[in-house]
Amino acid sequence: MPTLHTINKSPFERSSFASALNHLLPGDALLMIEDGVVGARKSSAFAGRLEAAAKTCRVYVLGPDLAARGIAEKDVVAGATLVDYGGFVDLVTGHDRTQAWL
C-alpha cells in the first residue's frame, strides 16, 4: 500500500524534507515540487541523503519547477525521474494516499 510523499520546501530552509525522508517505507514514492526541487540538485550538501532514499523508494522531480529555478536536467541527482503535471497526476492516482510534507 505505497504512499506518495510530496515535498514543496527546500531542505536548506525547513526540516520538512528531512522529516519526509524519515517517514518513507520501501516502495513509497517521493515527489519534489515548488521549492522542494532545490533538494534534487546533485552534489549539494543534501544530495547524499536523497540518493540513499532513492535506493529503496522512487524519487521524482516536477520538471516545470526545476526549469523555473534554473536547474538543468543533467544536474539532478542520480536516480531521480522528471515528471510534468500530468505525471504528477499519475503519481497521485497510482498510489493509495498522498502525504504532503508542508
Binding site: M1, N22, H23, L24, L25, R97, Q99, A100, W101
Partner: peptide, 16 residues
C-alpha cells in the same frame, strides 16, 4: 517514528 510511519501507511486519507 517507525511505528508512526506504519500507522500513516494504513490510512485512507491524510489531512495536512
Amino acid at each position: 517514528r517507525s511505528e508512526l510511519t506504519e500507522i500513516l501507511a494504513r490510512q485512507d486519507v491524510l489531512f495536512n
